[in-house]
C-alpha cells in the first residue's frame, strides 16, 4: 500500500503535534491530522475548536467546526469568544493549523479576495495567526497558491518581512507549511524549503511556487506513513473518502 501525497501531508501535519500540546484546528485536513495525532503518538494532545468546543475526543468524520461529531467527550461546550479569546488570544494554545487560498513568501495568508473572486473570509484564521506561537499550514502545492505577495492579507505571517510582525504589535511566530511537494519553514523571515516529500525535487517545488524559495543546505525527505498508520487514516478516520476523494479511484 503506497500513501498518496496528500495522505503523507496529513501525517506530516500530525507529527507537528507533541503529546500534551494544546492545538486549535478548523475542519478539513487539519482536523484529520489532529485526530490522527491523538490516536497515535499524542494521545494527550488537546484540541480546541473555534465554535467553543474545548478538548473533545473526535468521532470520525466531522465536516464542520460545529459538527456534533466534534463535540464528543469535551471538557466544555463554550462559545467562540471563549475559544478564540479565552484560550487563543489569552495564549493558552501553542499551535494552530490553517489553510488558505494564497500563502506568500512571508507566510501571510489570504482567505478573503483573490483577483476579484470572493472567498469565505478570515473566520478564526486571523486570530490563530495573530496569537499562536506556531502555525502549521497544510495545503496543496500550486503555483497560484504561493504568490510573491498576497492580494489581500487576511492573516498575518511576517507581514512585509523581518521585524514587521513585532512592529505591528504581534508576538513571535514559527510557521511550517506542509504541501504535497515539500515542507517550508520561516521564523521572522521568508519561507525556506527544509524538506521534500518522497519523490519530489527542489526543481518541482520552485516550478510550482510563485516566489523563489531558498532551500536548506541538506534537504531531508519526509517519512511516509507506516502500513498501520495508513490503515488508521483510511479505515478508521476517513472510511467514506470524504477527505481523500482521490482514493475512490484507486
Amino acid at each position: 500500500m503506497r500513501a498518496l501525497p496528500r495522505e503523507i501531508l496529513v501525517v506530516e501535519g500530525a507529527r507537528q503535534i507533541r503529546d500534551g500540546d494544546v492545538v486549535i484546528v478548523g475542519t478539513g485536513l487539519p482536523l484529520l491530522a489532529a485526530t490522527f495525532a491523538q490516536r497515535t503518538h499524542a494521545p494527550q494532545a488537546r484540541l480546541v475548536i473555534e465554535s467553543g468546543v474545548v478538548f473533545p475526543r473526535v468521532v470520525p468524520t466531522p465536516i464542520s467546526v460545529v459538527d456534533p461529531r466534534l463535540m464528543n467527550g469535551a471538557s466544555r461546550h463554550g462559545s467562540l469568544f471563549e475559544a478564540l479569546g479565552g484560550l487563543v488570544q489569552r495564549g493558552l494554545v501553542q499551535t494552530g493549523f490553517l489553510g488558505g487560498a494564497q500563502i506568500d513568501r512571508y507566510a501571510n495568508i489570504n482567505s478573503t479576495w483573490v483577483a476579484g473572486k470572493r472567498l469565505p473570509g478570515s473566520g478564526g484564521a486571523n486570530d490563530i495567526a495573530s496569537h499562536c506561537a506556531t502555525v502549521v499550514i497544510l495545503t496543496d502545492h500550486e503555483r497560484r497558491r504561493f504568490p510573491q505577495r498576497c492580494d489581500y492579507v487576511t492573516s498575518p505571517g511576517f507581514l512585509d518581512g523581518p521585524g514587521h510582525r513585532a512592529k505591528a504589535g504581534l508576538p513571535a511566530l514559527k510557521v511550517k507549511v506542509i504541501t504535497d511537494l515539500c515542507v517550508m519553514e520561516a521564523t521572522d523571515s521568508a519561507l525556506r524549503v527544509t524538506g521534500l516529500m518522497p519523490g519530489a525535487t527542489l526543481d518541482a517545488v520552485r516550478n510550482n511556487t510563485g516566489f523563489t524559495p531558498e532551500a536548506a543546505e541538506t534537504l531531508g525527505t519526509v517519512m511516509p506513513p507506516s502500513a498501520a498508520e495508513l490503515k488508521l487514516l483510511r479505515e478508521v478516520l476517513d472510511p467514506a473518502c470524504v477527505y481523500f476523494p482521490e482514493r475512490k479511484n484507486q
Binding site: 486571523n126 489581500y152 492579507v153 487576511t154 505591528a168 504589535g169
Partner: peptide
C-alpha cells in the same frame, strides 16, 4: 480591545 487583526488588510 483585541490584539487580533494587527498588521493586516482586515
Amino acid at each position: 480591545p483585541t490584539r487580533s487583526l494587527l498588521g493586516t488588510d482586515v
